[in-house]
Design a protein around this nucleic acid. Structure first.
Length: 616
RNA sequence: GCCACCUUAGCUCAGUUGGUUAGAGCGGCUGUUUUGUAAACAGUAGGUCGUCGGUUCGAAUCCGACAGGUGGCUCCA
């Protein structure tokens, strides 16, 4: 067995040991599935009216340790499926019974539901099974394919982490079970390392840093999911907007602008009103008209396109808008800047001919790649080629032939650019397939940023046309795209990626001048330097507080200001400064003194170049 | 929305099994000090203990509802 397999078996065995312990403590417990996940395992448990809470972890772990000490053998045996169903009935395990009934019918749906392949005797497309395997340790028996370690004594270090609700088989309409998560490693040391890593990750959580670095806030009066950006946080937004504007110019994208509300009719035509009715914010006019806050900008952009007749020579038309959009998210899913009710997107739509799709999609992949490479995110992502769920065609608008073509072309682009895209069935948008660029936050949660989506459907719904070279009317193709997705999510990633230590071009405060004392000539000189820096477009402040230099340095470092400059007698006399560089930045020439003007010019250039390294 | 948990000063947190006027550090303000590269000193002001209701002689502490948040599930144009 490889080390990997060993670890897997060990984690899976711990899932069984957890269930064993839970059954000892709550004999009436009903069990769902208990697979291995990244770094550990979970088990889905239904205790009826009783509920496990974090307070119970200690005694569950104690009970687990007992089971481990007893070193119970994991004994495998098989039963015919009917006998297995009888067993499930007898032992009052309705969830297992349901799984077994599915197995009996035809195992495929079960296998797909259970991401960890709990019931491994089944493979895709296989017919109903005859025998199912069980594992027994002590007095706990579980339907399971294994593999397991030999005995309960052969597991490494573990810790129960959290308890969460989870719908049976991932379906909201099913009863909700409790999912008991644990982490497990071969050795105590690795477990400790993992827990330390989690502690470190928490320190770069954007919600914590957003507060500490004074970037954004939420207000109970404004409402949940509606972030307020402070002056510092707004700098991040504005710098990103500037960067995008520059890209737009380079690639001939045109800035457009649309209002934040629109008649509901617009979304009825686009199809959003039906499928996303629950997420629309409604606005009632006094004059009998119903509006909604825009959840997307694409329908608006179609109307800009539709405002005049278009020729094949006009295409491609690339519209882009940086605007806030609103979605009435369920309260329970709002998370910091990760999921908000109002969020700013760089929403863009390209209208083109079918023969231009590949060129346009390729260009967008290139833009995305360059942008992310520059901020240092590229390579920390994976790409999803999101296509239809062939089983639920009713979830999509448009005709199947167009979908086939669109899915094929995106796949080609992904291959051309070696994106190593993973084909994700059922992840497509209602109107077309897409390439999604997925990133991880500090705590390892995945989030989508950039996206490129093909859409044959919406132009038809809005009856958009262009005149081709033969004088005939044709439907354009629409490509929805976002480079950074939502500014909120992107800023979340930025904060966590840099742990708040932004490169100079993004730093809310780039230079801080610290006065040694409050004497007139010191203050005067500092404000002269301040003016000089401002003229060069540097974001600069003066700290003239009546505090020690040490304290002021500390404050600047805590706010992660890239450059601090102490102003005192020496500087006034020499006209030179020794910039102090933020501790994380690579300093090539420490303690080097610079002519003030040269120093400021260097910083200004560094900010302009949008690079992540220091130039001093 | 669903499940579990959390909510004490601007921030980070103490607050013994319900028992007088709820504490600390940082930050703020005032004063002293005029400072040379990660925390000068002193004083002082901040809290109906998230909100509302209940139990009790007595509630920050127990119960309930609501609000906000955290971890998941579901969803994510």
């Amino acid at each position: 067995m490889s080390q990997q397999d060993q670890l897997h078996a060990m984690r899976h065995s711990l899932a069984h040991i957890t269930a064993t312990a839970v059954q000892h403590l709550w004999p009436h417990a009903k069990f769902g599935v208990g697979p291995v996940v990244e770094n550990g395992f979970y088990y889905d448990i239904d205790l009826g009216d009783a509920k496990i809470s974090e307070e119970d972890f200690e005694r569950i772990e104690a009970e687990m340790r007992k089971v481990i000490e007893q070193n119970q053998i994991f004994e495998r045996f098989e039963k015919p499926v009917d006998e297995a169903i009888a067993w499930a009935k007898e032992s009052n395990q309705p969830y297992k019974e349901e799984l077994l009934n599915d197995l009996k019918r035809a195992g495929t749906t079960v296998a797909k539901d259970l991401d960890a392949g709990e019931l491994g005797t089944i493979t895709e497309g296989e017919a109903a099974v005859e025998n199912v395997s069980f594992y027994k340790n002590g007095n706990f028996t579980d339907l399971c394919r294994g593999p397991h370690v030999e005995s309960t004594g052969k597991v490494g270090a573990f810790k129960l982490m959290r308890i969460a609700g989870a719908y049976w088989r991932g379906n909201e309409k099913n009863p909700q079970m409790q999912r008991l998560y644990g982490v497990a490693f071969a050795t105590e040391k690795e477990l400790r390392q993992h827990l330390n890593m989690l502690e470190e990750a928490k320190k770069r959580d954007h919600r914590k840093l957003g507060q500490e670095l004074d970037l954004f806030t939420f207000s109970d009066l404004v409402g949940p999911g509606l972030p307020l950006y402070t002056p510092r946080g707004t700098v991040l937004i504005e710098e990103l907007k500037n960067a995008l504007r520059e890209i737009s110019r380079q690639y001939d994208m045109q800035l457009v602008s649309s209002p934040h509300i629109a008649k509901i009719d617009l979304y009825e035509t686009s199809g959003h009103a039906g499928k996303f009715a629950g997420e629309l914010f409604h606005v009632q006019s006094h004059y009998d008209q119903e509006f909604v806050m825009k959840p997307v900008s694409c329908p608006h952009h179609t109307q800009i396109y539709a405002a005049r007749p278009r020729s094949y020579r006009d295409l491609p038309l690339r519209y882009i808008e940086q605007t806030m959009q609103y979605r009435d998210e369920k309260p329970g899913q709002l998370v910091g800047l990760q999921r908000t009710r109002g969020f700013t997107v760089d929403d863009g739509h390209t209208f083109c001919r079918v023969d231009q799709i590949k060129q346009e999609a390729s260009m967008l992949v290139e833009v995305v790649r360059d942008f992310y490479e520059n901020v240092g995110f590229w390579g920390k992502h994976w790409v999803s080629l999101s296509v239809r769920d062939p089983k639920s065609p009713e979830n999509y608008i448009g005709i199947p032939e167009d979908w086939d073509a669109a899915e094929r072309m995106l796949k080609e682009v992904a291959e051309d650019y070696k994106l190593d895209a993973k084909r994700m069935e059922g992840e497509a948008a209602i109107y077309g397939p897409k390439l999604d660029f997925m990133f991880q936050d500090a705590l390892g949660r995945e989030t989508q940023l950039a996206t490129i989506q093909l859409d044959f459907a919406m132009p038809k719904r809005f009856e958009l046309t262009y005149t081709d070279e033969k004088g005939e009317q044709q439907s354009p193709v629409m490509i929805h795209r976002a480079i950074l997705g939502s500014f909120e999510r992107f800023i979340m990633l930025l904060i966590e990626h840099f742990a708040g230590k932004f490169p100079v071009w993004l730093a809310p405060e780039q230079v801080r001048l610290l006065t040694v004392n409050q004497e007139e000539n010191t203050v005067e000189f500092a404000s002269k330097v301040l003016e000089q820096a401002k003229e060069l477009g540097i974001r600069v402040t003066v700290d003239n507080d009546n505090e020690s230099v040490g304290k002021k340095i500390r404050n600047a470092e805590l706010m992660k200001v890239p450059y601090t400059v102490v102003i005192g007698e020496k500087e006034i006399e020499s006209g030179k400064v020794v910039p102090r560089v933020r501790s994380d930045m690579e300093v090539q020439k420490p303690h080097e003194s610079y002519d003030i003007e040269n120093f400021l010019k260097t910083v200004a250039n560094e900010a302009k170049s949008r690079v992540s390294k220091t130039s001093l």
